[in-house]
Design a protein around this nucleic acid. Sequence first.
DNA 1: GTCATAACGGGACTCCCATTCCATTAGTGG
DNA 2: CCACTAATGGAATGGGAGTCCCGTTATGAC
Lengths: 209, 209
Amino acid sequence: MTSSSADPGSLRPGGRTARVRAAVLQAAGDALAEGGLAGLDLADVARRAEVGRTTVYRRWGTPANLVADLLADMAEQSLPRTETGTLLGDLRANARLVQRTLADPRQGALFKAVIAAATCDDQAAAALRRFYDTRVTEWEPCARQAVERGELPAGTDTREVVRAVSAPLYYRLLTTGEPLDEAAAERAAVAAAAAARAGAFVSEAPEAP
Amino acid sequence: MTSSSADPGSLRPGGRTARVRAAVLQAAGDALAEGGLAGLDLADVARRAEVGRTTVYRRWGTPANLVADLLADMAEQSLPRTETGTLLGDLRANARLVQRTLADPRQGALFKAVIAAATCDDQAAAALRRFYDTRVTEWEPCARQAVERGELPAGTDTREVVRAVSAPLYYRLLTTGEPLDEAAAERAAVAAAAAARAGAFVSEAPEAP
DNA sequence: GTCATAACGGGACTCCCATTCCATTAGTGG
DNA sequence: CCACTAATGGAATGGGAGTCCCGTTATGAC
């Protein structure tokens, strides 16, 4: 037999197929933002997207798969980082970006739902990891430049510095009811910078045996 | 009419009712650890607990309610903190405790599932907040004592210091595939201590107008 | 010990999610 | 522009989760 069933949408990705995917992902995002992962009913998504139920079930199958595809789509829309010339300035810009994203009602709910999906399904978890890899890779240079400038000790795990900015913001989003305000972003940036300067993220001996 | 329907289990909480609750919560924890929130089927929980389906539906109704009750139960089993005499020592002890808990296959999966539930349901979210309030209140004194000792600047938000230890560990658990090892706990403790010493968690002017 | 009734448990019922079948629509290569 | 078929969408089907009814069990008060 020939290439009989290479999942739908891959052989004729143009025109209608692309429109359907865009509409479904948009609808899925809306549904997630409104009702969380529990509110993600594929039939409901189909209705919102004005697309046949069958199509959604055939192309995505499960809520987790749909979330995984949504994440892949989100990863492609990575924003360029801003450069300020100092570590604290760069981390502050990153913290503000993350804080604004998570504080936004739609985006915040969406991220919560996406993280919830990742705890249930391996495929969604893998997609989530790729998403954050992309984001960290985008921002990691700001820590690397700080090392080159001498602001941070040699041997600093630069990716870990960037993650240290996001961590408290996500922690607050998920475990407390307190609002994600500008002060929280500032604290996150200052704390990460201070910890990095103190060498908290130095993994091994800098160099030379 | 008299007090007709003050939810089941409240008027005769002794004997069988208590046994049923214990068995159901145990089974719910097992189910969550195995299949995540998605794998939490009330009928399945009833089967595991060797309890009638009707009972589970009547007393808890929804997966989210069941998770909320499970969290209330978990909050009661708070572990006493250890005191080492120094801020870093105390934070390290806390970090190791959190790290060991999250690294444990059953507990780790359980916490992931519980957080997922909190993103979907307000009642579960409130229960989760209470749980972390309890834990933070248990450990907050270690930061307060550090302020009294002069290790930390006056005006430090002591609860925020404790949360700063947990944040990177939870962030790693939820967003990366990397293992939660001892090194991660050490980094978390050192980073939180360094940030606190640098005054990252000072919220307002210490005192005096 | 005895009684009233809170709480439990089995079985039947309903409803909605997910799958399957087939006709219709519209990309893509010639 | 035409033919081929990938992809979609509507309708019928099946299965499993959640609800309801009512008899049974055992708690707690007297």
